[in-house]
Design a protein around this nucleic acid. Structure first.
Lengths: 246, 246
DNA sequence: CAGTGGTCTAGACCACAAT
DNA sequence: TTGTGGTCTAGACCACTGT
């Protein structure tokens, strides 16, 4: 398909050509959010490829967050996505507000249990010591965006599991336990969602996610919080705002 | 394959079963970094699937950064990856040092040109005003990790293109121009690498990347730097260290 | 019932590097 | 030439939803 001349040329596979074509049509504003793309079998005819090849092109756009596949108006189909939701890192309870969107965190479970090795090491306690652990599903407009699993040393938070755990956890720590977050260290990487995460976040099997593993410290440098957050890579962009101290 | 009972059950596709199987074998330490996996056609026989299905399983592991496909010892094959490289966000010139690894930034190009609309808006200058722009390829042990494209208003950096641009840019700004970075605001999201980026970063077509779009401000709140950084999602994890001011 | 995407097959041909 | 991964075909059957 492409011109090739003296070592400089690159022959694009069909699935790249097709995804490039569809991407430019979406970016060009030809197709609005939630507008249906042609059915896969129609794309095959349009581009003269087999369905596996057309699907590869759509899979690229899906992992870019540019399209999604779902039921709309009672029909299965592939549709143009809305823009990603921006989440501000470091103040996890506040997403950047958008008109018509409202945040929420559903508590999936909360319990006291023995610390794993990794949790104990992060929190500076003994393996097997009690931690309070909780998992929450963060949404925006009922769209699941992130899965947060958080751990605290149980001894510093008596009665914590009876608090309201659907809002800002840092607010609870500040107001009820006089624990003031002062510093956070996080490690962020791209992962493939496992079965549980992709089910809870309502993505396809083995979709990409952003995994943020973080520890939060008080002003004395003591780590009081360990958390593993998993974001939908196709729906979230993270905003990082940071002072430079060096 | 899986048990199914009254709404609770999930039937795993073959490619998920196979990738789960290989993942646990790699994670279990059975296979060390750079050890070859069985050829795809052998995996087909082992698991009784067609090659397309076996490849889907390997593609998942590849996008997880758990395996790579390359030539080693003169043979094409699929091999176990080394652990990801940790890069510290905010001090881009310093990767977390590891024995035997040494960082480097290759200057791909540097030039003065008119600002695009996005660059001008970020830097607070007029569209079309002069910016100095440069692109660098960051490596660790010759392994390409990130592609950085950086923009500055040309008028604040006379002679900048004659400086050594292969080290820390912030050091040059501090030492030669008395510009002190005080704050950085960044937006991070998962993207699919385009042809140019996947070529420079030596990934397969349409591999996942981490795109960091950032602006850096001096102590007066003036934005003097706009940058678009693209990381290899399979090879990099980002470390974020942040004071909490709220 | 029809229409859609999700999974899967059983092959094919190619490029590439070492032998 | 051999062996590997990369691309691609031309189908198939399934689950799901609404008519």
């Amino acid at each position: 398909m492409e011109k090739t001349s003296s070592g400089e040329h690159i022959l694009q596979p069909a699935y790249v050509r097709i995804s490039d074509d569809l991407r430019s049509r979406i970016r060009g504003g030809d197709l609005k959010p939630h507008a249906p793309l042609p059915p896969e079998r129609e794309l095959c005819l349009d581009h003269g490829v087999s369905r596996m090849t057309a699907r590869r092109a759509l899979n690229i756009l899906e992992s870019e967050g540019l399209v999604y596949r779902d039921y709309r108006d009672g029909k299965r189909g592939t549709f143009v996505s809305e823009p990603r939701i921006e989440l501000r890192l470091g103040s996890f309870s506040r997403e950047i507000s958008k008109a018509g969107r409202h945040p929420g965190a559903e508590l999936l479970w909360a319990e006291k249990k023995p610390a794993s090795h990794a949790q104990a090491a992060a929190l500076g306690i003994d393996t097997g010591a009690s931690v309070v652990a909780l998992q929450r599903l963060r949404r925006s407009d009922n769209e699941p965006l992130a899965l947060e699993t958080t751990f605290y040393p149980a001894h510093i938070l008596p009665g914590f599991l009876k608090e309201d755990l659907s809002g800002s956890l840092w607010d609870v720590l500040r107001n009820k336990y006089a624990i003031i977050p002062a510093r956070t260290v996080a490690n962020l990487e791209v992962v493939v969602l496992d079965q549980e995460a992709s089910h809870l976040l309502q993505t396809r099997q083995a979709a990409a996610g952003l995994r943020l593993i973080r520890r939060t410290f008080d002003k004395d440098g003591k780590c009081f919080e360990y958390a593993e957050d998993t974001y939908r890579a196709d729906r979230v962009s993270l905003v990082i705002d940071r002072e430079i101290d060096e």
